[in-house]
Computed example of a mutant assay.
Amino acid sequence: MMASVPLRDTTNQQIKHRQGNGTRFSKQTSFESVKYVLSTHCCENECCRQFTCDEIKSCRINYWTKTMQQQRRYLFSSLRAAGSHKLLVLGREVCETGWKAMYGIGKRRLWEIKKLLAKKSDVPYGDLPRLKKPSVEYLQAKTWLEIYARQFSERQPDKEEYRLPSCITKQAVYDLYKEEMIKAKQKVLGRSSFHEMWQKALPTVKISKGKGAQARCTPCINMETVLMNMKLPKDIRKEIEEKRRLHLNLQSICRSKYYKHIKKACESPDKYVSLIIDNMDQAKTRLPTFSSNSKVEAHLHKVQHHVTGVKAHHLGKTFILTWTDQFHPDCNITINALIYTLHEISLICDSDS
Rank of each mutant, 00 (worst) to 15 (best):
R255A: 00
I105W: 01
L88T: 14
K178G: 15
A312V: 12
R60K: 15
N45V: 10
F194N: 00
N279K: 00
P203R: 13
K206A: 12
V136E: 14
E55G: 04
K120P: 07
H343P: 02
H343A: 15
H261A: 15
G83S: 08
L145Q: 05
K295V: 13
K234S: 15
D330S: 15
T29Q: 01
L275P: 00
L145C: 11
H261Y: 03
M280N: 02
I320W: 04
V94F: 01
D350T: 08
Y259Q: 13
L116I: 07
C42R: 01
R130C: 08
Q199R: 14
C42A: 13
K260S: 15
S291L: 07
R237C: 11
V188A: 07
T65A: 09
W64D: 01
D270C: 11
K317T: 09
T29P: 01
Q304M: 07
R49C: 06
C48L: 02
Q13E: 08
T308F: 12
P329F: 09
N332D: 15
S208G: 10
I61L: 13
Y162C: 13
W111Y: 14
N222V: 06
Y148I: 06
Q140H: 14
I333T: 06
P129S: 03
C217W: 15
Q70C: 04
R130G: 06
F51Y: 12
I277C: 02
R109Q: 11
W111N: 08
L116V: 05
E161A: 11
V5R: 01
R191Q: 11
I348N: 09
L246S: 04
V37N: 00
H343E: 15
S84H: 10
H301E: 08
S58W: 05
S353W: 15
T10L: 10
D127K: 06
W111P: 00
K178N: 07
E179H: 15
G190P: 02
K257E: 11
Y177T: 12
T67P: 08
Y162V: 13
Y125N: 04
Y36I: 09
K119M: 14
C43M: 02
Q156T: 11
G104V: 01
T318A: 08
V136P: 10
S292V: 02
A81R: 02
K132M: 13
L117W: 01
K317L: 15
T97F: 04
L87Q: 04
T169C: 05
P329S: 09
L75D: 03
T218H: 14
A141E: 03
V136R: 08
K159R: 15
F327A: 04
P129K: 08
